[in-house]
């Protein structure tokens, strides 16, 4: 929270703004240059690492999770609805893409859009009753839903392969979204991250974005402003789940083998999306990307270095990050950056 004296310093009463307050509210077009610059920097990073297939691999995962955390942030950060069900939307997207490809021969490039639609539909349907609950109770209900999905996933063998899992044969070809080189996957995930980022900017710089934040801050005040709270939550959830479903489809096409227990893992997906958003900065546009750039490479390193000797070591470190951020860094990397910027701009007298 900004302390009152800081805020007072931020807008001295005597200083009459040169430009009107309305013109300083950023629109989509106003935010776009920064978003494109950030995407350009990430593209530069891919180019710089293009010879190193190990680094490209980690980068691809990082960008996938950046896009997924950004998607979670729409409903979790801006909307303040702490969903633990996103691994379900992720899995729905994955199995939709995989089944369309394996059984009907539909290219994953088309399948991911069906995945987006189905994930959004599942999300809206499940959230409708659950959105009566607030805060931790919403989180509990979504967590329970993950367990239910796992039971159904293991049960519906024809769609998921059951506990034995499901695999996609290695058939090289751009139409199959199956590549040999790591660069192609990095570019694929970059495309996903860019899509997610642009959707986040579009939502954030729109009426819906403001309505989501109003619902997060105070539902009663939101209603008094004419906002249909349930409808806003459902819309935010559907957009968030649609992006998550696309991410699930891309993930499955990259790993090509998974079982429901892996796809619906709370620690590996559902909670990790939230964790990355928290580390980067909840409810910020670029926080999830920053969070992913820190967490995913760190986790890869931990897995490689100590994962073999100490099972679960990477999750121990992640959980310490989670607790530490909750206690000491509530606004994440973006929050720390803003605090530093505020201090630099206004040195203490």
């Amino acid at each position: 929270m900004t302390s009152p004296d800081l805020a007072a310093a931020a807008a001295p009463r005597d200083a009459v703004p040169r430009r009107s307050a309305a013109s300083r509210v950023k629109t989509f077009a106003g935010e776009l240059p920064l978003a494109l610059l950030v995407l350009g920097l990430v593209a530069g990073l891919i180019w710089a690492l293009s010879g190193d297939s190990f680094a490209l691999n980690i980068l691809a995962t990082t960008l996938l999770f950046a896009g997924l955390a950004g998607a979670w942030n729409i409903i979790g950060g801006f909307g303040g609805q702490f969903s633990l069900a996103h691994s379900v939307f992720f899995a729905v997207g994955a199995y939709t893409t995989a089944n369309l490809y394996l059984k009907l021969g539909i290219s994953p490039w088309l399948g991911i859009w069906a995945a987006a639609a189905l994930s959004a539909a599942v999300a809206a349907l499940v959230s409708w009753p659950v959105f009566r609950l607030r805060g931790p109770f919403f989180a509990i209900a979504t967590m329970a839903f993950t367990e239910v999905a796992l039971a159904i996933g293991n049960y519906a063998e024809s769609l998921t392969g059951g506990t034995r899992g499901m695999s996609i044969p290695f058939r090289l070809g751009i139409q199959n979204m199956i590549f040999r080189d790591r660069l192609s996957y990095a570019l694929l995930m970059f495309g996903f991250m860019a899509l997610s980022l642009l959707v986040v900017v579009a939502v954030n710089r729109s009426r819906l974005g403001y309505y989501l934040q109003a619902v997060r801050d105070n539902e009663q005040a939101a209603r008094a402003a004419g906002i249909g709270v349930l409808r806003v939550k459902l819309t935010g959830m559907a957009i968030s789940a649609a992006l998550t479903g696309i991410g699930g489809g891309l993930f499955f096409m990259q790993v090509r083998v998974a079982d429901p227990a892996a796809m619906l893992s709370l620690f590996e997906f559902g909670v990790k999306f939230a964790l990355i958003a928290l580390i980067g900065g909840l409810g910020t546009i670029y926080g999830p990307l920053l969070g992913a750039l820190v967490i995913i490479p760190l986790e890869n390193w931990l897995r490689a270095e100590i994962g073999g000797t100490l099972p679960g070591a990477n999750l121990i470190v992640l959980s310490l990050f989670l607790i530490g951020a909750a206690l000491f860094m509530k606004h994440g990397i973006v929050g720390v950056g803003r605090a530093i910027a505020a201090r630099v701009r206004r040195p203490r007298p």
């Binding site: 509210v25 934040q213 109003a214 801050d217 008094a224």
Partner: peptide, 15 residues
């Protein structure tokens, strides 16, 4: 009941 994380103008924009 103000929307505490939004700015003053954004609070009014919500209306």
């Amino acid at each position: 009941q103000t929307l505490t994380s939004l700015t003053v103008i954004e609070n009014v924009m919500v209306g």
